[in-house]
C-alpha cells in the first residue's frame, strides 16, 4: 500500500523525489552497463521485474482485518542490487499511479524510496550477511525478502509520521506518537504478507537456480559451491 496521491505536503514530496531520483539514475546507468556487457541477463531482469508486477498486484487480506499487498522487490535486490531494483520498482509504481489511482505521481518519490530503495537495500544486506554466515540458501532468501517487504512498510510509516506528526509540528515525541499509529496500521497488516512473500521468493529462487544457476554464479550472486550443494541435496 503506497502513499496516496496528494497525501504528502510540501516540502516532503519534493524531498523524497530529491533522494530517489539520483538512485534511479544510477540504477538506469548500472542496468545499461550490465545489459551491454552481458546480454544474456536480460531474461533474468525480465523475471525479476515480472515478479514485482505479480506480487504488487495481489491485495491480500491480513490478520488485522485489512488488506495490503507484498512488494516482490526482494528478488531483484538479491540478483541485481538495490539501484536496479529502484528502476524496476519505479516502473510498477508508475503503472499503478497512472492506471489504478494507487499511489500517486506527487508521492512517487516517497514510494520509490520505500519500495524501490529502502526495502531492497535491507533485503540485499540481509542476503549478503546470511550468505557470509553460510546459513541455508533458501532460508536466507526467505529472510531477506520478508525483511525487505516489512522494511518497505516501516519506511512508509516513517514517511507519513514525519509529514504528519502529532500536534501538527515536527517534534520527536509527536513523530514517535504518530509512528505508532501508522506502524500499527501497516506493520501488523504486513507481517503475514511479508512471510508469504519470503516463502514465494525462496520458491522462485529454487527454480531459477535449477535452470540458470551459471548466470547467478557469474554475477557473483551465489557461489558455485553453494549451487553444487543445493543440486546435491536438491531441496
Amino acid at each position: 500500500m503506497h502513499i496516496m496521491e496528494g497525501f504528502l505536503d510540501t516540502p516532503w514530496w519534493q524531498l523524497w523525489f530529491a533522494v530517489s531520483i539520483p538512485v534511479i539514475l544510477y540504477g538506469i546507468y548500472k542496468m545499461n552497463r550490465l545489459v551491454s556487457e552481458k546480454r544474456e541477463i536480460l531474461p533474468l531482469l525480465a523475471v525479476a521485474g515480472a515478479f514485482i508486477f505479480v506480487l504488487s498486484a495481489l491485495k491480500l487480506p491480513s490478520v488485522s482485518g485489512s488488506c495490503s499487498h507484498p512488494t516482490g522487490t526482494g528478488i531483484a535486490a538479491i540478483m541485481f542490487g538495490p539501484a536496479i531494483s529502484a528502476v524496476l520498482g519505479t516502473i510498477v509504481l508508475l503503472y499503478q499511479a497512472l492506471f489504478l489511482a494507487h499511489g500517486g505521481l506527487t508521492t512517487l518519490g516517497a514510494n520509490v524510496f520505500s519500495m524501490g530503495i529502502a526495502g531492497p537495500l535491507a533485503a540485499y544486506i540481509v542476503y549478503k550477511a546470511g550468505m557470509k554466515a553460510r546459513i541455508n540458501f533458501y532460508f536466507v532468501v526467505f529472510l531477506a525478502t520478508a525483511i525487505g517487504d516489512w522494511v518497505t512498510y516501516g519506511v512508509t510509516s516513517t514517511q507519513l509520521a514525519l509529514a504528519y506528526p502529532q500536534g501538527g509540528i515536527l517534534t520527536f515525541e509527536g513523530f514517535l506518537a504518530q509512528l505508532k499509529v501508522f506502524g500499527a496500521i501497516f506493520g501488523l497488516t504486513q507481517l503475514p504478507l511479508a512471510i508469504m512473500e519470503g516463502a514465494v521468493s525462496a520458491l522462485l529462487f529454487k527454480y531459477v537456480v535449477n535452470v540458470k544457476s551459471d548466470i547467478l554464479v557469474e554475477m557473483k550472486v551465489i557461489e558455485a559451491a553453494v549451487v553444487r550443494k543445493l543440486r546435491g541435496s536438491s531441496a
Binding site: 500500500m1 497525501f7 491480513s62 482485518g65 485489512s66 495490503s68 501508522f182 496500521i185 504486513q190
Partner: peptide
Amino acid sequence: DAEYMGADGQAEDAIKEAT
C-alpha cells in the same frame, strides 16, 4: 466483522485525524 479494506485507506483516516 472485519471489513478488509485497504491499509492505505486506514492511513488516510489516520492523517485526517492527526490534522
